[in-house]
Design a protein around this nucleic acid. Structure first.
Lengths: 258, 258
DNA sequence: ATACAACAATTCGTCATACCTTTAAGACGA
DNA sequence: TCGTCTTAAAGGTATGACGAATTGTTGTAT
């Protein structure tokens, strides 16, 4: 009953079992603000006692949290929560924790603001650089969107695939990484966007816009690709804001057992 | 004057001693491409033997590398190098390792490409949002640049401070994080840029450009701030390319003991 | 021969315990 | 008041043993 669902989270994190439990639990506690920056965590033996695990496991979990910038570990001093500006926000786990702790809205808005900046630029680069495989990926994503107008989940996934493909086609390693880090989080955002009661026409319009981006990239028209992509992102932004306002808030996706 | 030298790396990583040694060594080995993606690392006991440390320390180091996305650890299978697209490129250590392993040039160019995208946008946001403290930081950085025309190192640092202040003033958590992650690496880039024999006039022109950005932000003229900032970044880009071509390559900065 | 079930071997995962190293903080003396 | 010494608290490292997961193989029945 415990790993029963893995709802949308990446279980590919290569860490399982006890440590994963500790990392998740403490990570969420910190991101959720239950221990404030500057404050101390219990000592390693104490944590071990709390979770009924050995100090070894606690320490390995702490190393991971430290690598994510959440905590600072100092000998003789103890383990202290870092200021949020040190948190590695380009980390899928931290993004997910924000979401699960109900602090996802602000992050989502910042993220969309960033997408407004990055995605048009990525589309422009893609127009000049995309190779054959990447053109194919783009087209495939569009077609899948078209085919899945009635399946919100699959539609969202195809939508995501399209945007990731654009990042990839930009041939910039940072943009590529950004896409892959953010993809889990973005999938959630897309699903929320769809909760805004958008009729079938709205979805079809969305597909058409995406298709225009695709064709602009295909023709090598960077400027048009960028402009259209900006429209796509802004369109999504307003859907998201609408969905957030209309109550169906983030947290209904983040519930889970434990 | 004792933290005075810390060559250029951030030793603030809260990890010291044995583990740090292992992390650095293996991290550089992987980023340097000496073990290819998909290949296996030695088993934990073997690594322990190689480095003359206990399995405990090896494992804690591995956890960190795994959190950075460099390796994938699986029970009974072993530890395998991940594909580069999984590497967390928004990580100061990984950026530094790229640099130290002589693979920094490509990364630097991708990074500058990203700055061309992000910084004008950040400047535009800053023009609308910067608070009083942030205005002060910007002004202070400009003045320091002006004062340090003869001290390349200090000039570079002030230059960096200015750009970081712009990210901060954008009030977007992702942009802020990006600045802080990239700052170490960027400092190196700025120093390299200065190796392009730029006379005093060139530096003064640079200061003047930065100042125009500052004033545009001050007046709340987002568009002008963005345009001028783009000029600044492009100016830096051409200096960097010139410096890279003229031989004085990256690696003379990355030498160190050990 | 093929399919499937049981088993063994390997590698990471966890545990318990002991001791080392660093460093904050108080005691002490100049 | 200042600098030095002592000490105790917290993390850092070392061993050795056993647990758990997964792969590959062996063996058996069809």
């Amino acid at each position: 009953m415990d790993n029963a669902y893995e709802p949308l989270s990446g279980s590919r994190s290569s860490i399982r079992g006890l440590q994963k439990t500790i990392i998740e639990s403490i990570g969420r506690t910190l991101v959720g603000g239950k221990i404030l920056p500057g404050e101390f965590l219990p000592t390693e033996p104490e944590l071990g006692a709390n979770y009924n695990v050995s100090r070894t496991s606690v320490r390995e979990a702490m190393r991971v949290l430290s690598a994510k910038g959440l905590i600072e570990i100092r000998q003789k001093v103890g383990t202290r929560v870092q200021e949020p500006e040190h948190w590695n926000i380009f980390d899928s786990d931290i993004l997910r924790w924000h979401h699960e702790e109900g602090r996802g809205d602000a992050v989502m808005l910042d993220l969309i603001e960033l997408r407004q900046i990055l995605e048009p630029a990525a589309a422009k680069l893609a127009a000049n650089r995309a190779n054959m495989d990447q053109h194919r990926s783009l087209k495939l994503a569009i077609q899948t969107m078209q085919d899945q107008l009635d399946s919100p989940e699959d539609f969202a996934r195809a939508d995501l695939d399209f945007h990731l493909a654009v990042y990839e086609a930009s041939q910039n390693s940072f943009l590529l990484q950004f896409g892959s880090v953010v993809s889990d989080f973005l999938r959630r955002v897309f699903i929320i966007q769809q909760q805004a009661v958008r009729g079938r026409e709205a979805l079809e319009l969305d597909v058409q816009l995406h298709n225009e981006v695709y064709e602009a990239i295909n023709r090598g028209d960077g400027q048009l690709a960028a402009d259209t992509m900006l429209t796509v992102v802004l369109e999504g932004k307003s859907s998201l804001i609408e969905a957030l306002k209309s109550g169906a808030n983030s947290n209904d996706l983040s519930r889970r057992g434990e």
